[in-house]
Amino acid sequence: MLLECRNVCKNYGKREVLKDVNISLPSGKIVGLLGKNGSGKTTLIKAINGLLSLDKGEILVDGHKIGVDSKKVISYLPERTYLNMHKTVKDIIEYFSDFYEDFDKDKAYKLLSNLKIQAADKLSIMSKGMKEKVQLVLVMSRKAKLYILDEPMGGVDPATRDYILDTILSNFDEGSTILMSTHLISDIERVLDEVIFIDDGKIIKSESADKMRKESGKSIDEVFREEFRC
């Protein structure tokens, strides 16, 4: 298994944000982590990336505990912009290629030139959508085993959503796995192999997308809405 979460628990003060989460993902899949806002998606993703300490349980990535070895094989797109605004595109590309052995500089420049972004462009003058695209390019220009994308389409216009989905798909190769969280299910469900429903810190469902469609005769989006009707 590429990713294994065993009995993962996380509390914020007295609030339980993750309650005994168990997940195991093989290589070669595009997996949707689907849940409402505040369901624990981002917390789980942050834990896998080593940004949060766990209260209980264990996470293994490619057989490694969270640490230098796990970080080498994960390419992570957070739900916020982490780019230092004083930098230029070139600076940030150098930064990535200095730290990640699997970063493909040429690919990054190629993808950026498709977006008409120049190496000398400053991040501070870019729109939010543009910054998100730059971050996605950086993340997808690595040849990682596990890509973790937290709300890759959050807060961007539909045209940008198409660009983002295309970029993810055309850079996915079957040896890796993509775990992406979203609450905009209808936009991405056609590309998903597996879906994981998370609600109130618990995994509700974890199965193949096609199986879910066949059994219910409905789209994932509809199944999700019925499951979590308020």
Partner: peptide, 14 residues
């Protein structure tokens, strides 16, 4: 085919 139809390569495979 995956690029053409914008779907997951696994779906094409299937």
């Amino acid at each position: 085919l995956s690029n053409m139809y914008k779907v997951n390569p696994n779906t094409v495979q299937k």
